[in-house]
Amino acid sequence: MQFKLIINGKTLKGEITIEAVDAAEAEKFFKQYANDNGIDGEWTYDDATKTFTVTE
């Protein structure tokens, strides 16, 4: 399945899409990606669109 991350950071904005087995695997990848890029904010997930959003 495809999952999307929308980044609304103070210094980094954009979107990335990955293939993952389930939402838990996608969330783990996205949170590591955000951590690696210094993004720390509020997370939301929309199951209907398979979209995670992080907002700083």
Rank of each mutant, 00 (worst) to 15 (best):
N37D: 06
F3A: 01
G38F: 15
A26G: 06
T53K: 06
D40K: 05
N8C: 02
L12T: 10
E42K: 14
E25Q: 14
L5N: 01
E42T: 05
A23C: 03
T11Q: 15
I18L: 08
T51R: 12
E25K: 15
A48C: 04
A26I: 01
K13Y: 11
G9E: 02
K31A: 08
A20K: 08
L5W: 04
E15H: 03
I7L: 15
N37M: 06
M1W: 11
N35I: 08
N37V: 09
L12I: 14
I18P: 00
T55D: 09
K4P: 00
N37I: 15
A34Y: 01
D46R: 08
T55W: 05
I39H: 09
A34T: 15
L12Q: 07
I6N: 13
E27C: 03
A34F: 01
G14S: 08
N35K: 10
V21G: 04
I39E: 06
T49E: 11
G14N: 09
F30I: 01
T17F: 06
T53E: 10
D36N: 12
D22E: 15
G38P: 04
Y33Q: 06
M1Q: 08
V21W: 10
T49M: 09
E25D: 11
E15V: 05
Y45C: 01
T55Y: 11
D46H: 06
T17G: 04
E15R: 02
F52P: 00
K13W: 15
E25H: 11
E27F: 12
A20H: 07
G38R: 07
T17K: 13
M1A: 08
T44S: 07
T49F: 04
I7R: 00
F3W: 15
G9I: 11
D40W: 05
K50P: 02
T11P: 13
A48H: 08
G14H: 08
F29W: 10
G38Q: 09
N35V: 13
V21T: 06
V21N: 15
N37G: 06
T53G: 07
K10P: 08
Y33W: 03
W43L: 10
D40E: 07
K31H: 13
E56R: 01
N37W: 06
F52G: 00
L12K: 14
N8R: 11
G38H: 05
Y33A: 05
N37C: 04
Y45Q: 05
A24R: 03
K50F: 06
K50Y: 15
A24H: 15
E42L: 07
Y45V: 07
G14C: 02
D47A: 10
I39A: 15
D36H: 11
E56V: 05
N8K: 12
V54M: 09
A24E: 02
D22C: 02
I16M: 10
A20N: 13
E56G: 03
M1Y: 11
M1H: 05
I6Q: 14
E56C: 03
W43K: 00
L12E: 08
G9Y: 04
T44P: 00
T44M: 03
I16W: 07
E27D: 10
L5R: 00
A34R: 02
E27I: 14
E15Y: 02
N35P: 03
E25I: 03
E27N: 10
D46S: 11
G9N: 09
T17N: 13
G14I: 15
V21P: 12
I7F: 09
D40Q: 02
A24G: 12
E56P: 01
F3P: 00
F3C: 01
E25L: 13
I39P: 07
G41N: 00
G41K: 01
I7K: 01
A20D: 13
Q32E: 12
N8G: 02
F29M: 13
N37K: 09
N35D: 15
N35Y: 12
F3Q: 00
G9K: 12
T11V: 09
K31E: 08
K10H: 06
E25F: 09
F30R: 00
G38W: 14
K13L: 14
K10V: 09
K50Q: 09
F52D: 00
M1P: 04
I7N: 15
F29C: 04
I18D: 02
D47C: 05
T51M: 08
T17S: 15
I39S: 03
A23N: 05
N8V: 04
I7V: 12
F52C: 01
T44F: 14
K28V: 12
K10I: 10
D22L: 07
A20R: 04
Y33R: 02
A23Y: 14
I6A: 05
N35T: 07
K10C: 02
L5A: 02
L5I: 02
F29D: 07
K28E: 15
K31R: 09
A24N: 10
A34L: 11
E19V: 05
T44K: 14
I16K: 08
I39Y: 13
A48K: 12
N35S: 11
A20F: 11
L12M: 09
D36C: 03
D36E: 02
T11C: 02
G41T: 00
K10R: 11
I39C: 02
I18W: 04
D40I: 13
T51E: 11
K31D: 05
A48R: 14
I39D: 01
M1K: 06
G14V: 13
W43H: 02
A23L: 06
K28G: 08
W43D: 00
G14D: 15
F29L: 09
G38I: 03
F52Y: 12
G41C: 01
T17H: 06
K13H: 10
F29I: 12
N35R: 08
A48P: 06
E19L: 10
E25S: 15
F30W: 01
D22N: 02
I6L: 10
D36M: 08
I39N: 03
V54F: 11
A23D: 14
K50D: 05
D40S: 06
D47E: 02
V54H: 15
F52A: 04
F52N: 00
F3T: 01
D46M: 05
E42H: 07
F3H: 02
E27Q: 07
Q32K: 03
Y45A: 10
Y45N: 07
I16R: 09
I6D: 11
G41R: 01
T11E: 05
Q2V: 07
F30N: 01
E42D: 11
L12H: 05
K28Y: 14
V54S: 04
A24V: 11
K31G: 09
T55C: 02
E19A: 09
Y33C: 02
K31C: 01
E15D: 03
A20P: 03
L5G: 07
D40N: 03
K31F: 10
I39W: 06
F29Q: 12
N37Q: 07
Q32Y: 08
D22W: 08
T51F: 12
A34V: 05
K31I: 13
K31Y: 07
Y45H: 09
A48M: 13
E25A: 14
T51C: 03
D22Y: 03
L12V: 08
V21Q: 02
Y33L: 04
N35G: 15
T53W: 09
A24L: 03
Y33N: 03
K31N: 13
T44N: 10
A23I: 05
W43E: 00
K13F: 12
F52Q: 00
D46N: 15
E15A: 05
E25T: 15
E25C: 02
Y33F: 12
E42A: 06
T44C: 01
F3E: 00
I16L: 15
D36L: 07
T53F: 15
G9H: 12
D36P: 01
T53R: 11
Y45L: 06
K28D: 04
V54E: 01
A23W: 06
M1I: 14
T51Q: 13
M1F: 11
A24T: 08
T11F: 13
I6Y: 11
E42V: 03
D46P: 01
I18E: 13
M1S: 13
A23T: 12
L12N: 11
F52L: 14
V54Q: 01
W43S: 01
E42W: 08
D46A: 13
A34S: 04
T53Q: 11
Y45M: 06
W43R: 01
T44H: 04
Q2N: 02
